[in-house]
């Protein structure tokens, strides 16, 4: 019996490649469990709202500052090039396309991957290594539903809202610069800004935001929920949550942009 067990533990290809495919299988199993649990009552409204507060409201200050500076700096950097062709009147339109199509979702997602992803990864990992998750299980509480489903839902719902907010704040940053240089009014700025923005742009950005939010939630919850190696595992879970989330966000960005361009 022991020898058959040892045989079963021998890698099929190599330890690293086997481990990679095993991880992918476990992540898909984790995601499928999320979809099963999310539809099953009871709904964890209180914990979901608490997580929305932590993911959304607690990120507002950082998002505001980053979004505003991104819009302002991008406008300042673009001005000299456009001024060469006497095309500074295109600035609102250019900035709006850049901010709404790319900068808002990407900047928000990267900031949330760092702030929210690491926090969720570390919190769940710490709960795992201090046996708090086991304590929930033995108290007949479903820790997956209470801890994981609420956090993934919160990131999936709140990050799109934050993306919209970042876009608005970024455009306000741009408006400040345009107003100081061309004395453009707010109404004119926004009329010009949205001239070249299509419905598809909003849809694409919305899809990106939802996908990024879901990715951050899944990756950080998975890393935290399956943490091992005591306190060292907590730091590792937080770190890997950020690195993998950021990597996946860029991959997803490329895929979604390719799809939207093929539709356009």
């Amino acid at each position: 019996m022991e020898s058959s067990k040892e045989q079963a533990e021998k890698p099929l290809i190599s330890k690293g490649i086997d481990g990679f495919f095993r991880d992918i299988y476990y992540i898909f199993r984790f995601i499928s469990r999320f979809f099963k649990e999310v539809l099953r009552p009871p709904v964890e409204v209180k914990e979901f709202i608490r997580q929305c507060y932590l993911v959304g409201y607690k990120s507002l200050a950082l998002i505001t500052m980053t979004g505003f500076i991104t819009g302002l700096v991008f406008t300042k950097q673009s001005r000299p090039s456009l001024a060469e062709f006497g095309a500074t009147s295109w600035l609102p339109s250019l900035i709006a396309i850049a901010v709404i199509r790319a900068l808002a979702p990407l900047v928000t997602a990267l900031i949330c991957a760092g702030k929210v992803g690491s926090s969720i990864g570390a919190e769940l990992a710490s709960m795992r290594v201090t046996e708090q998750i086991d304590a929930m299980e033995v108290s007949a509480i479903n820790p997956f539903k209470y801890l994981v489903v609420t956090r993934i839902m919160a990131t999936t719902v709140c990050i799109p809202v934050l993306v919209g907010y970042t876009g608005l704040v970024g455009l306000m940053g741009s408006f400040i610069d345009v107003h100081m240089n061309e004395q453009t009014t707010l109404t004119t700025f926004f009329q010009e800004a949205f001239k070249n923005i299509t419905f598809l742009d909003f849809i694409t950005t919305g899809v990106k935001a939802v996908v990024f939010g879901f990715t951050i939630g899944v990756v950080s919850c998975y890393q935290g929920y399956h943490a091992t190696q005591g306190t060292q595992g907590v730091g590792k879970a937080a770190n890997i949550s950020v690195v993998i989330s950021m990597f996946l966000i860029f991959i997803e960005e490329i895929i979604i942009v390719q799809i939207s361009n093929s539709i356009r």
Binding site: M127, Q132, D134, V138, I141
Partner: peptide, 28 residues
Amino acid sequence: ELRLKIGFCFQHGALYDSMTVGENLAFP
């Protein structure tokens, strides 16, 4: 159902860090 009849006391207590003592007890 079985776990409702089993009390498990962990080595380090495994209290929920984000809750007060009262909330820890009320939660289950």
